[in-house]
Nucleic acid binder design. Structure first.
Lengths: 229, 229
DNA sequence: ACCTGAACACCGTTCAAGT
DNA sequence: ACCTGAACACCGTTCAAGT
């Protein structure tokens, strides 16, 4: 991890010109002012007034920077979430909280899908995962089933976020979108799609995240042998 | 779209040195021989022995190239899929077919999430979407509910593919992964995760795509008012 | 009609040489 | 201990000038 900072010991060598915290703060400034596209290591170094290569003493690489940035954001967003007693509701609240925390994170794709992502996130995020797995066990799942339920919900959540945030980033005008779908669907082989036609984008625009999640959770619980006690 | 090719009319001007088909074939060669990372417009032009900028006469941009490539692949993979009569089974077969067709497509993320993706794919892929929406209507969904069911399944599918293919791309050794998860989960605040500990990667490695999809579909149908006739 | 090199405006990362 | 410029090995895209 970062450089050792023992305030009592006399400092040795060249003094640091930046720090992990300063880098993350600068990254947020760049993103807020100019957008995610402009968050490059070179731009970030310029923002801090340091050499680009200096950053490599504080973050491992670009992916590591993004992960740290996401972690900080998620920690802020999830720290105060209160989890209900009822297990089914606890699953839903925890996942909706994760979903909402990631919602204004358009570059999530680059980070959410890294290998072993879950082993690299911080306490508040893990607290939500624990809530889902624990609640699933309370509802009668084996630990394996509970993990599978979390993972299925995670896939659904990641997919929803990535598809929706990408669409939001650069979408055509609503009328043009309706037109494109109407054209693409107007085939004799696809009568049901043709019937929906230009209404597809409008239906797709509705917020169905929670409803889909409930279906996934209830459908999973349905498959468990009814057990109580 | 591409240049006009009317074989009967006398050709005018400088003759083409390449074509859409030749570009897609060359792209496949590059991917198969050197991997997705090496599929750049510059590398592709070199493979074809043409100037890089020549490609811009046949594809709109990089995204367009990727979309055409995916479309060709999906068309091959989905063309012969037979769909069963039973509506619930039809939904599952269609989505599993889409899933499997995209499974060996590690760069799917860049393409699957483009705005209006569905309005840009070809016939065989749309046939699968029609199968899902049509079957959902057969099961008692309104067109709106059918579209929502397809979209929820699509999110789940995209998420599963992206998370899994990324993990596959560059993952640590199994023992190291188990160790990382064990360490990350070993906290008093996360007792259920701690109990699973090093077994997480193994559980995550099991193929649960179809099981999760069934749960999502059944859970959705559960929410419909029981209707027959 | 179609092709092209040069140029523009960038990337992430490594390395040897500072201070 | 920490910082740095230079260099490496690339990108996608535009444009004016060919043939």
């Amino acid at each position: 991890m970062g450089p050792v900072t023992d305030e009592t010991a006399p400092r040795r060598g060249r003094p640091p010109v930046t720090s992990r915290a300063a880098i993350l703060a600068a990254a947020r400034r760049v993103v807020d002012a100019e957008g995610w596209d402009r968050l490059t290591l070179r731009r970030l170094a310029a923002e801090l007034g340091v050499g680009t290569t200096t950053l490599y003493h504080h973050v491992r690489d670009r992916e590591d920077l993004l992960l740290q940035l996401l972690d900080e954001h998620v920690e802020r967003a999830l720290g105060a979430v209160e989890l209900p007693e009822d297990p089914r509701e606890r699953i839903l609240v925890a996942l909706v909280a994760i979903h909402d925390a990631l919602d204004d994170w358009p570059r999530a794709a680059e980070v959410l899908t890294v290998d072993g992502f879950l082993a690299r996130v911080g306490g508040p995020a893990l607290r939500m995962v624990e809530a889902v797995v624990g609640a699933a066990v309370d509802l009668g799942c084996t630990p394996e089933q509970a993990v599978s339920l979390f993972r299925a919900s995670w896939f659904y959540t990641v997919g929803e976020l990535l598809v929706r945030t990408r669409s939001r980033e650069r979408s055509e005008a609503p009328e043009r979108r309706a037109e494109l779908f109407a054209e693409a669907f107007a085939r004799p082989e696809t009568p049901h799609l043709a019937a929906v036609g230009p209404r597809w984008p409008e239906i797709a625009g509705r917020d169905g995240y929670r409803a889909g999640l409930e279906a996934l959770v209830d459908g999973t619980l349905l498959r468990l042998p009814a057990a109580d006690g």
